[in-house]
């Protein structure tokens, strides 16, 4: 029973760590730049999950004030993550623009081919 409790209490954190590590793995291991950017957005999304999990109160409800409820989840992480999401899509869009520009210059979006071409 205690082990089950421990799993339930740490499940969100464990999944957060897993998502973050897989994002990191994609960014390092994949040579394709579009897939790298998908990995980057996975990494960002895991941070959202971490913040929102910290803000949740069990038995609470969404922070929209209503006379019937007294316990609300913490609104501050929600605000921070709203900002982070919007900045995240700006990063992704800029990264994809750079990828398109690289394709115009080198004719490929594979890292290894570019390295071969430039002799790095």
């Amino acid at each position: 029973m205690q082990a089950l409790d421990a799993i339930v209490q740490n499940y969100n954190y464990a999944i957060t760590v897993f998502l973050m590590v897989s994002g990191l793995y994609i960014v390092i291991a994949s040579g394709n730049m579009i897939k790298k950017i998908v990995g980057l957005s996975l990494f960002q999304t895991s941070v959202y999950l971490l913040y929102i999990s910290a803000g949740k109160i069990l038995g609470g409800t969404a922070p929209i004030i209503d006379r019937n409820y007294t316990i609300y989840s913490n609104p501050l992480p929600h605000v921070l993550i709203l900002t982070a999401i919007v900045v995240g899509i700006a990063t992704v869009a800029l990264g994809l623009a750079i990828v398109a520009r690289i394709h115009e210059e080198y004719g490929t979006i594979e890292e290894d081919e570019i390295f071969k071409e430039t002799g790095l």
Binding site: A62, H78, L82
Partner: peptide
């Protein structure tokens, strides 16, 4: 997890 606005944005 009660983050309704964040869910809409995401």
């Amino acid at each position: 997890l009660d983050a309704v606005d964040v869910a809409m944005t995401e």
